[in-house]
Amino acid sequence: MTVEKTYVIKGEPESEWLLLDASGQSIGRLAAQIANYLLGKHKPNYTPGVKMGDFVVVINCSQLAISPKKMTTKFYYRHSGYPGGLTTTSLKEMMRTYPDRVIKSAVWGMLPHNSHGRELMKRLKLFAGNEHLHDAQNPKRVN
């Protein structure tokens, strides 16, 4: 029986700033790509459970390519904690009011639901329009 050794990175891993354009992309494929960048799975020295991913800036969240059927059949749910406190919002209404939350919800579903995932979500910066506030970090554009 052979024992495989697990690679553990030494020191603090370096993080880059990446810029993604969401215009014309589908929600799921974009969210999977963002989740991989946040987790650091695109790096050759990836180690699970280590914050070695990059900061991701997403622009044009309001210009996602969504089919008309999905706009009316997909719903987002939240509950206030009180009896009868379930609130339902359609994808169409969510894209009209908060288009960044659509991507945020999809990416959160692809990350670990623990403290590590919550730390990774802080590295995601979403903007509905073409402008973003992170020019000082010189984000590298990703196709």
Rank of each mutant, 00 (worst) to 15 (best):
L91N: 13
R101E: 02
Y76K: 03
C61D: 05
F55A: 03
H79N: 13
P48K: 02
T87Q: 14
H132G: 12
S105A: 15
R78V: 07
V56L: 06
S115P: 03
G84F: 08
G109C: 12
E4R: 11
E4S: 12
M110V: 07
M1W: 05
D54T: 10
A128Q: 09
I9M: 10
Y46M: 10
Y76H: 05
M94G: 09
P139G: 07
T87A: 09
K74N: 13
F127K: 09
T88R: 15
K125I: 05
S15A: 12
Y76D: 01
P112D: 10
I27H: 04
L19I: 14
Q63T: 08
A32H: 12
K122Q: 14
K74P: 03
G40L: 05
V57C: 08
D100V: 15
T73I: 00
E14H: 14
G49H: 09
M52L: 13
E4N: 13
R96I: 03
E16S: 01
Y7S: 07
M121V: 09
I66F: 14
S62R: 09
Q33T: 15
G24Y: 11
S62Q: 11
K125F: 01
T97W: 08
N138I: 00
C61Q: 09
M1A: 11
R96A: 08
E4D: 15
N60Y: 01
M94W: 06
H134L: 07
C61F: 07
H132P: 10
L86N: 11
D21Q: 08
H79F: 14
N138L: 11
R141K: 15
S67I: 06
E131P: 00
S67V: 01
H134M: 02
R78S: 12
G49T: 06
A136V: 00
G117H: 06
A65H: 05
S115K: 05
L126E: 08
P112W: 07
W108V: 04
Q137G: 06
T87C: 10
R96Y: 09
